[in-house]
Design a protein around this nucleic acid. Structure first.
Length: 690
DNA sequence: TAGCCTCGAGTTCT
DNA sequence: CTCGAGGCTA
C-alpha cells in the first residue's frame, strides 16, 4: 500500500486552491484569505513536492511565479525575469542566522573568514514594478505578471509624483529600475474614507479596500488613469532589471545610492551590516520601528552586498541564493467566530464582543475582539459561524476586519440584531433595554440595580485615580456582589472580618489588607470623591473643576443649573447631568451614607501652598513610557508644579514629554514644532530650570 | 456657525 | 489609543 494516491489528491486540491486565490489576489484585487493562510498552503505543497519529486508538474504554482495578464494593458516581456525571493517563515531572529550559515557554506568560507557584508532593507507590502528608462527617460512601467511577462501600466505609474520621468545625470541606453509601488497608510485611510462617502451617497460599484496593498494593486491596474490619480501611490526602488550602457556599482548598497542620486526614491531605513549578528540587530531594530512607519511592511530583506559574490552564488530554480526575505509575525489572521457576547458597561452600555477561536496574531493570542455596537456589527455583516479576518497592529486593540464570504457556511447565523438576541432585556439583570434616538448604543435601564453596572461602579469607585482602595480588584468585586455582601458603595465601608471570611480564597491576611485599604481611602479630596461617584460626563478633570469652583459638596449638590454653568468647561449637557444625578434621592442617600461611614475631605481643595509652581500656565502631553516615572507619577508631579497634562498634542501644547516607544503624538509634536523633552528634561523643568 | 481643543468612555492582553 | 461629543472661540 502506498500513500501516493492520497497525496496526489491533496496536491491537486492545494494547487486548485492556490490557483483560485492567486486569481482573486492578483487579478481581481480581492483576496479571500490572509497571506499567512496562502503561505501555509504553499509551504505544504512545497514540502510534499520535496519529499515526492515525482508529483512535481510544470504548472505547479511552485514552479512559476503566479499572476496573470489582464486584458486592457499591453503585455511586456521582461528581458531579465522578475523573480521572487525565498521567504524565511521563521519569524524569530533565527532565520537570519540560518541565512548567514547558508551563505558562508555556499561561498565555501572558512570558519575564521571575515564576516560577510549584507545589504538589509525593508520588505514593502505593495506590488513589484519594473521602470524602464531609455537614455534617461521613463518609457515603460510594467507589473511583474508571471515573472516573464507583465503589463505596461505606465500611464498609471506616471501619476506617482515621486517616480522621475527623467533620470538625473544618467543617459544609459537602457536602465530598468525595479521596486515596489505601495500606498501609505494615511493615504489608504483617506481613500477608504472617500469610498465610504461614495457608498453612503449611493454609489453602487464602489467598495472599500481591505488593506493598503490591495488598494495599491487596484490603483495600478485602473484602466482609467484619472481614477488611478485619486489613489495616491508611492514608490521605492530595490533593484535592477536590464542594463545597457551603465556601469553598475560593485555593491548592492552602492547601486541604490547611485539610483538615489539620479532622483529615484530609495528607502532610507536600509543598512549595510556584517554577518549574522548584524542581520539579527537589523531585524530587531525594524521590528521596533514597524508600527511607526508610514507604510506597511511584512518583513525585511537581506541581500549579499557584493555583486561579485552574488554572481558566484547564482540561483536555485527561480530564486536567487544570495537573498532572502524574513517575515514578521502576521498582523492579520483568519479565524472562526464562535459567538457574540454582549457586555454591560458601567454606564449600562451594551457592547457586542466577538468570541473567536483563539489565533496567534501580532505576537499574542487573541480570543476576544470588540464589535463596538450594533450598527458596526451589521455593517460588517458578521454572523456566528463565519470565518473572519482579525487584525492586530502593534499596540492597537484587535479588531474584526471583515468576513471571508467565500467560507460562509450553509448554516450561518442570522444577521446580528441586538434587541432580538436579548429579547429586549439586559443579559445580566433583565431590565428593559433602550436605544435613544440618534445614539449608536443600546443601554440597560436597570441602573444601579443591575449587578453588572453595580460591579463596574464599585471598580470605578475603588480604582487608583479615585478612592484608590488597594486590594479591591475585579475578582473580589465579583465575589462580593454575587454573594450579596455589597449592594451599594456605602456597603464597602461596612465590611468586616465576619463577612469577608465567608469568601473563598480569603485569608486573614488578605482580609486585613483589604480593610486597611478601605480605611485609608476614607481620607480623600472632594475632586476624587466626585469623580468616583460616576456621574455621566464628569471625569477626572471636570470633577476637579467642580470641586475647585464650589469648594464644598453641599453647595455643589444644591447648585442651580445657572450656577453650574459658570464652571469652566461646563456647558448645558454636563450641568444637566450633574443636576440630574443629585436630584435622585437614592444618589443623595449614597453620598450621606458614605459621609456617615467616615469618608471625608478638606473643604477647600488644593489651597495654594508656598511650593514653587514653575509650570504654571504650561500644558504638557505625555507619550511613551518614561525610564523611571510612571505616567500617573509624572502627571501628579506636573500638576503639583502648576502645569496641566493633556491627552492630545495641539498648538496650545507647551511641551511634549516623550519616552520609549513614543507614538503618533511625537510625530505631531515635530509637525507643529513643539519642544520635546525626555524624562531628564522634565525633571529639570520641575526643579525650575528653564 | 464652524472648527478646534479637550474630556470622557470603552477596550485587549500580559 | 481612538472615537465621539461637549464646550469654547474666532
Amino acid at each position: 500500500m502506498s500513500e501516493t494516491p492520497l497525496l496526489k489528491e491533496r496536491v491537486a486540491a492545494i494547487r486548485a486552491q492556490l490557483h483560485h486565490h492567486a486569481q482573486q489576489y492578483y487579478v481581481l484585487d480581492a483576496p479571500q484569505i490572509p497571506d499567512a493562510e496562502y503561505d501555509k498552503l504553499y509551504q505544504e505543497l512545497e514540502a510534499i513536492e520535496a519529499a515526492h519529486p515525482e508529483l512535481v508538474t510544470a504548472d505547479s504554482p511552485t514552479q512559476r511565479v503566479i499572476g496573470a495578464v489582464l486584458d486592457g494593458f499591453t503585455p511586456v516581456r521582461h528581458v531579465v525575469p522578475m523573480l521572487s525571493i525565498r521567504t524565511e517563515t521563521d519569524t524569530t531572529a533565527q532565520g537570519a542566522v540560518e541565512f548567514d550559515t547558508r551563505v558562508r557554506r555556499e561561498l565555501k568560507l572558512a570558519e575564521d573568514a571575515p564576516q560577510v557584508d549584507y545589504a538589509a532593507e525593508l520588505k514593502f507590502d505593495g506590488l513589484a514594478i519594473n521602470l524602464r528608462y531609455e537614455h534617461g527617460e521613463l518609457v515603460q512601467a510594467a507589473t511583474r505578471g508571471d515573472g516573464e511577462t507583465g503589463e505596461d501600466v505606465l500611464q498609471n505609474i506616471r501619476t506617482i509624483k515621486q517616480v522621475p520621468r527623467k533620470l538625473r545625470g544618467c543617459s544609459a541606453a537602457v536602465l530598468e529600475v525595479r521596486g515596489e509601488v505601495y500606498m501609505r497608510r494615511d493615504e489608504f485611510d483617506a481613500l477608504n474614507e472617500r469610498q465610504r462617502e461614495l457608498i453612503a451617497a449611493g454609489a453602487k460599484n464602489e467598495k472599500t479596500f481591505v488593506n493598503p496593498r490591495n488598494a495599491a494593486a487596484g490603483a495600478v491596474r485602473q484602466l482609467d488613469p484619472a481614477m488611478a490619480k485619486k489613489r495616491p501611490l508611492s514608490f521605492f526602488a530595490y533593484g535592477l532589471g536590464e542594463v545597457q550602457g551603465w556601469e553598475v556599482p560593485e555593491t548592492h548598497s552602492g547601486m541604490l545610492d547611485a539610483l538615489a542620486k539620479m532622483g529615484v526614491p530609495v528607502n532610507e531605513d536600509r543598512a549595510v551590516v556584517q554577518g549574522a549578528d548584524g542581520l539579527v540587530a537589523f531585524h530587531e531594530r525594524i521590528r521596533e520601528l514597524r508600527d511607526s512607519l508610514p507604510f506597511d511592511i511584512d518583513g525585511v530583506v537581506y541581500k549579499v552586498n557584493s555583486r561579485a559574490l552574488q554572481q558566484q552564488m547564482g540561483f536555485v530554480s527561480r530564486e536567487p541564493r544570495w537573498a532572502v526575505a524574513h517575515k514578521y509575525p502576521a498582523q492579520e489572521q483568519m479565524t472562526r467566530l464562535l459567538g457574540i457576547d454582549i457586555q454591560v458597561g458601567r454606564t449600562g452600555k451594551l457592547t457586542p464582543v466577538a468570541k473567536l477561536e483563539p489565533v496567534f496574531v501580532g505576537g499574542t493570542t487573541v480570543s476576544n475582539a470588540t464589535l463596538h455596537n450594533e450598527d458596526e456589527t451589521r455593517r460588517k455583516d458578521v454572523r456566528i459561524g463565519d470565518t473572519v479576518i482579525v487584525r492586530r497592529a502593534g499596540d492597537v486593540i484587535p479588531e474584526v476586519v471583515g468576513v471571508v464570504m467565500d467560507r460562509r457556511p450553509e448554516d450561518v447565523g442570522e444577521p446580528f440584531d441586538l434587541y432580538k438576541r436579548l429579547d429586549g432585556k439586559c443579559p445580566v439583570c433583565s431590565s428593559p433595554i433602550e436605544r435613544e434616538e440618534g445614539e449608536a448604543d443600546w443601554r440597560c435601564t436597570g441602573g444601579i440595580t443591575c449587578p453588572a453596572q453595580r460591579k463596574q461602579a464599585l471598580l470605578h469607585f475603588a480604582s487608583r485615580r479615585m478612592m484608590d482602595i488597594e486590594g479591591l480588584g475585579d475578582k473580589l468585586v465579583d465575589q462580593l456582589v454575587d454573594a450579596g455582601i455589597v449592594r451599594s458603595l456605602p456597603d464597602l465601608y461596612k465590611l468586616g472580618f465576619a463577612n469577608l471570611a465567608t469568601l473563598e480564597r480569603m485569608g486573614d491576611k488578605s482580609a486585613q489588607n483589604l480593610l486597611d485599604g478601605i480605611e485609608k481611602s476614607k481620607s480623600t479630596t472632594l475632586g476624587r470623591f466626585l469623580y468616583s461617584l460616576g456621574i455621566r460626563h464628569v471625569g477626572e478633570t471636570t470633577a476637579k473643576d467642580l470641586a475647585k469652583h464650589f469648594g464644598n459638596l453641599d453647595r455643589l449638590m444644591d447648585a442651580r443649573l445657572e450656577e453650574l454653568l459658570e464652571v469652566n468647561d461646563v456647558g448645558p449637557i454636563v450641568a444637566e447631568s450633574v443636576r440630574h444625578f443629585f436630584d435622585q434621592p437614592q444618589h443623595r442617600e449614597v453620598v450621606e451614607q458614605l459621609r456617615a461611614a467616615g469618608v471625608h475631605w478638606p473643604d477647600i481643595e488644593g489651597t495654594a501652598s508656598d511650593a514653587p509652581r514653575p509650570l504654571l500656565g504650561k500644558t504638557l502631553v505625555l507619550t511613551g513610557s518614561l525610564p523611571t516615572l510612571s505616567r500617573d507619577e509624572a502627571k501628579d508631579l506636573i500638576e503639583a508644579a502648576g502645569g496641566k497634562v493633556s491627552g492630545s498634542v495641539s498648538k496650545k501644547t507647551t511641551y511634549v514629554v516623550a519616552g520609549e516607544e513614543a507614538g503618533s503624538k511625537l510625530d505631531k509634536a515635530r509637525e507643529l514644532g513643539i519642544a520635546v523633552l525626555d524624562e531628564a528634561g522634565l525633571q529639570a523643568l520641575l526643579r525650575g530650570e528653564g
